[in-house]
Amino acid sequence: MDPIIWDFDPILASFKHIQIHWYGALFALALLSNYLFMHWVYLRELGTADDVDRLLWYCMGGSILGARLGHVLFYNPSYYFSDPLKIFAIWEGGLASHGGTFGVLISLYIYQRKAPFDYWWILDRAAIAASFSGCLVRIGNFLNSEITGTATDVPWAVIFKRLDNIPRHPVQLYEAICYAGIFLFLLYLYNKSRTLNFNGQLCAWFLILIFSTRFVLEFYKQSLVSYSPDTSLSTGQMLSIPFILTGIYILYRAQKQLDQ
């Protein structure tokens, strides 16, 4: 079976000197989906969604700033440190999901200090929204022909014509499908609960499942770093391990509190 030929134009629309990429559109759609989901959650549990706008700005700032710094520090530091102004050129690409997650964790902590709920409450609910937005972002990566997989001869291999003529794993779609499944799983846990008192369990499952998925799929990805790590694990895998371990600890802690 011949590989799938992918020669999709990454530019959604052009207005004079301004270009809108499909990745940017999917990223914006991810933020919108977060907003709509949290709007529903606030109305369902708090009876008002007046503070959701402030939440959106905190999440947007934390995710973009964290994702950009994560890419700069862990994937191509020599390039950016040699030309620091390039750090601000986000339109050229370069966002790291590990950094984005860390940035959101910090921004949500700052946000909830002026909110009528605790840190775990917002983390558990934001985890559901984040898993779906991760799915959309990976679809955007596929449309942009970026974060490609390793060479393969599987029947569903894809040739990204904008890069080369090598059949590759469509690893972006693998990741998107996994994230969609994680979203459905977390949403199921959320809806089936009678108390809605998770104490960090949904956040824990998010960290464990998202970054375990990332760890496994890194074996099928082309390296994104500009240097060769002195280990058999990729940079993405090494960055995933602390998140997985943190998730396991939070799950153990939350379950122990619920059993008391």
Rank of each mutant, 00 (worst) to 15 (best):
S232F: 14
P155H: 04
Y249M: 05
W40S: 15
F243H: 11
F74K: 13
K114L: 07
I11D: 09
A157I: 00
T231H: 11
A67R: 13
A28H: 13
G140K: 08
C59D: 04
F243C: 06
G99K: 08
A254D: 00
L73Y: 07
T246R: 04
Q260S: 08
L258I: 00
C135H: 04
A13N: 08
V158Y: 12
H71K: 15
I122K: 08
I128N: 00
F81Y: 06
A157G: 02
W156I: 10
A49M: 00
I159P: 12
I11F: 06
M238C: 10
Y58L: 10
E92G: 04
G100E: 04
V72I: 14
Y58C: 10
Q172V: 00
L202R: 07
D51P: 10
E45C: 14
L173T: 13
G66T: 07
L32E: 01
T101S: 08
L36D: 06
P242Q: 12
L163R: 15
P10M: 10
H98W: 14
L31S: 02
D53E: 15
R162D: 05
K114C: 00
M1Q: 14
P116C: 06
Y190W: 08
F211Q: 04
S234F: 08
G149S: 09
Y58W: 11
A13W: 04
L233E: 09
K192I: 06
I248C: 14
N197R: 15
N34R: 14
L12I: 04
W205S: 01
S223K: 13
T213F: 00
W91H: 10
I20A: 06
L43Q: 15
I5T: 10
A49E: 01
R54F: 02
T231K: 12
K86N: 11
V216E: 01
I241D: 08
I106N: 01
L189Q: 05
S223E: 03
S226D: 15
T213S: 10
Y119A: 06
L163G: 10
V171M: 04
M1E: 13
D50W: 12
A204V: 02
L69V: 04
Y174L: 07
G70H: 05
L55A: 06
F27K: 12
F160R: 08
L56C: 15
L108Q: 10
